[in-house]
Design a protein around this nucleic acid. Structure first.
Lengths: 347, 347
DNA sequence: CTGTTAGCGCTTTCAT
DNA sequence: ATGAAAGCGCTAACAG
C-alpha cells in the first residue's frame, strides 16, 4: 500500500498495466469476478492492493447509468423515532446491497428541498423522505421527478409515490381507551399545535374511544404551542393549580416530551401519579421508560417502518411493474407505572 | 416542467439545443453565470426549467476532478452529542458551500470502515469521522489515504489528520470538584468499562480533584459494564442496600444515562437527592434537565466541535500549506438540583 | 459569445 | 482472456 501523496489516484488502467492484463479484465474483476480465471483474478487483486486502488464511483455510475446509492432525507435526526427508522432502513439496504446516505433537514423545508435536489443531482437510485408536516407538492417532490421516492411517516401521494405510515388515529384511540379502562372518567388531551396532522389524528382517535366507552367520560382539550418538555411543564403547573374536582384523572399527552414535563410538574406539586392522575404519552421516546415514574406511551414500529419503506423503494427501482401503495402499520400500547391504577370501574 | 417518464434525463446538450446556444454556454451558465449576457443566461435558465434539467454531479465531479461533498461518518446517531456535532458541522458546511452527507456506523467498526470506503470511492472532498473507541489504524484510515480526514471527539493522528476533542480529564475534575465544593466528603465514581478512553480520563480528572482538595475526601471506584440506564439502576440499588455510613454522599456517574438510572433507584428507595446524596452525570443529554430532580452534568460543546472540525477539514482541502493540529475544547459544568446541597464545609 | 474538442474513469460491446 | 473503441455528461481550453 504505497502513498501517492498529491498524485492522481490509480485508475483501472494503471491496475491493468501493473498486473499485465487488459483494461477490460480489470473491469471484469470488479463486476464479474466469476468470469475470470482464479489466477488472473488474484493477479488483478494483488495489483489493486499494491497500488492502493480505490474504485471511482462517479465514473462507475456515470458509465453504467445506475448505481446502488439511496438517500434518506430526515426531518429531525434528534428524534428517536427517525433514528429508529434510519436503522431499519439501513439494515434492509445492506441486505439488498444498497448503500444508505443520510441528510438532516432539521425541520427546515428549504434544507429538505436542498437535500432532495442534492440526491437528485447525485443520481441516487432512490430516495427515502421523512417529510415535514408541510406541503411537499413544492419543489421537493417535483425535483425528484423520474426518481423513485418513498415517504416515511407520511402517506404516499396518489400515483406518485409509496408511503409508510402509522395509524395515528388508532394510537390515540388505544391511549384514551387504556386510560378509561384504568378507571379514568375525566380525560384531558394535551397537545398541539393542532395544525400538525399527527396531533389531530391522535385527538380524533381519543375522542372515538370516549364515544365508544360504555361509561360516561368527561373530555377536555388543551392545545399547546409545542410538543416539548417546557410546554408540558406549563400544562402540569396549570393543572396543579386547579381544585381536585376540576382536575382530570387521566391525561393523554400527544408526545412523550409533553407527558414528561407534565408529570414532572404534577409530581413536584405533590400530586401523585398514577394515584391522583394517570398519564400517558406518545412516541416511546427512550427517556419515558427511564422516568422516576415510568411513563406509559404509544410506540411506533420505527425499525419496521424503515425496513418496509426501503423494500417499497427497491421494488420501485427494480420492478418495472411496480405499483404505488401506502403501508399503514399499527402502533402499540406500552403500559408502564404512570397508568397503573386500581380499577375503579363502577359495577 | 414536463414529465420524461422512462426517458433519459436531459443533458446540458439538450438544454443548449433547446435554448439555441452552444453547449459551452450552458456549462458557463452553470459555473460562471456572470460571464454571460443576462439575456442569454435567462434564455438558458428558461430552457433548463422547461426541460426539467437536473445537473449530473457524477459527470460534473468526474470532469472537474473536484467536488463539494463532505462525508460524515457518525458512531452513534442516537447519541445527542453526535447529533449536536452534526448540526454544527452542517452549519459550517453550508457557509462554505459544501454539502454534508451523513452515515451511521452504529457502533460497528465494520460498518464504519464500509462507509469510509464508500465516501472514498465517491471522491468526496473530505471526511469527518466520529470514531469508535477502537483502533483506527486499520482499514479505516488507510482507505482514506490521500483524502483529508478530520477526527471528531478524538485526537488527531500524528502527521496524519486533525482532530477535535474535549478535555475529558478537565470534565472529570470539574464534576468531582463541584461535588466536593457542595460538601461531599465521600465520593463514588461510577462508570465503565474502563477500557473506554473517555471514562478513564474522566476518572483521572476526578482523582486529581480529590488530591487537590484541602479537605480529606474518601474515594471509591465502581466499574460498570456499560454506560446505560439499566447499569445505573443496578448501581443505585446496590448503594441503596448499604448502610448510611457506608454510602457515599456524592456520586459522579461517567454518563448521564448512568446517572439517571442511579438517581431513579435511589429515589425509589427513599433516599433523597441531593439531601442524602448528590449526583452528577456527564454529557448533558437532553433528558437530564427533564428529570424530576434535574441532574447536574458536564456539557460538551457539540455544535462548536462540529463547526471547528469542518473548518479544519476545509482548510486541509483548500490550503496547500495546511498543518495538522488537534483542537481541544473545554467542557462546561452544568449545575442543577441534583447537586444543590447546603454547604457543609467545615470551618 | 460560438463551435469544437480532449479528457475525467469507467462500462460495454466486438472481434480476435 | 485480449485489445480497441464508443459513450456516459460534464469541464476546460481553444480558435474564431
Amino acid at each position: 500500500m504505497k502513498r501517492h501523496s498529491g498524485a492522481r489516484q490509480p485508475s483501472i488502467g494503471d491496475v491493468a498495466r501493473h498486473a499485465g492484463v487488459a483494461l477490460g479484465t480489470v473491469s471484469n474483476a470488479l463486476n464479474n469476478p466469476d468470469k475470470l480465471a482464479p489466477s488472473t483474478l488474484h493477479k488483478v487483486q494483488a495489483a489493486m492492493e499494491e497500488l492502493g486502488f480505490v474504485r471511482n464511483r462517479l465514473a462507475t455510475s456515470l458509465a453504467a447509468g445506475t448505481g446502488d446509492l439511496i438517500g434518506f432525507v430526515i426531518v429531525d435526526i434528534g428524534n428517536s423515532l427517525f433514528v429508529d427508522i434510519a436503522r431499519g432502513a439501513e439494515h434492509a439496504a445492506k441486505e439488498q446491497d444498497f448503500k444508505l446516505m443520510l441528510a438532516n433537514s432539521d425541520v427546515d423545508l428549504e434544507r429538505q428541498d436542498a437535500y432532495l435536489k442534492l440526491f437528485d443531482e447525485s443520481r441516487v437510485s432512490g430516495v427515502l423522505l421523512a417529510p415535514l408536516d408541510a406541503p411537499l407538492d413544492g419543489a421537493g417532490i417535483v425535483r425528484s421527478h423520474g426518481r423513485p421516492v418513498v415517504l416515511v411517516n407520511w402517506p404516499g401521494q396518489e400515483n406518485e409515490s409509496c408511503g409508510v405510515t402509522v395509524d395515528e388515529e388508532l394510537g390515540g384511540y388505544l391511549a384514551a381507551k387504556h386510560l378509561i379502562e384504568q378507571g379514568c372518567r375525566s380525560l384531558l388531551f394535551a397537545g398541539g399545535p393542532l395544525g400538525l396532522t399527527a396531533v389531530r389524528e391522535r385527538l380524533i382517535g381519543a375522542q372515538r374511544a370516549i364515544r365508544e366507552s360504555d361509561v360516561p367520560v368527561r373530555f377536555e382539550l388543551l392545545e399547546t404551542e409545542r410538543l416539548t418538555v417546557p410546554a408540558g411543564l406549563e400544562v402540569g403547573r396549570a393543572l396543579a393549580r386547579r381544585s381536585t374536582s376540576e382536575r382530570p384523572d387521566g391525561i393523554f399527552a400527544a408526545a412523550d416530551a409533553l407527558a414528561a414535563g407534565c408529570a414532572q410538574a404534577l409530581l413536584f406539586a405533590g400530586i401523585s401519579i398514577p394515584g391522583d392522575v394517570a398519564i400517558i404519552g406518545y412516541d416511546d421516546n427512550h427517556f419515558t421508560a427511564d422516568h422516576v415514574v415510568p411513563i406509559s406511551t404509544v410506540g411506533q414500529p420505527g425499525p419496521e417502518m424503515g425496513r418496509i419503506a426501503l423494500e417499497l423503494l427497491i421494488d420501485e427501482i427494480r420492478n418495472p411493474r411496480h405499483r404505488h401503495k401506502t403501508v399503514t402499520l399499527q402502533p402499540a400500547l406500552i403500559t408502564r407505572a404512570s397508568t397503573a391504577r386500581v380499577q375503579e370501574r363502577t359495577v
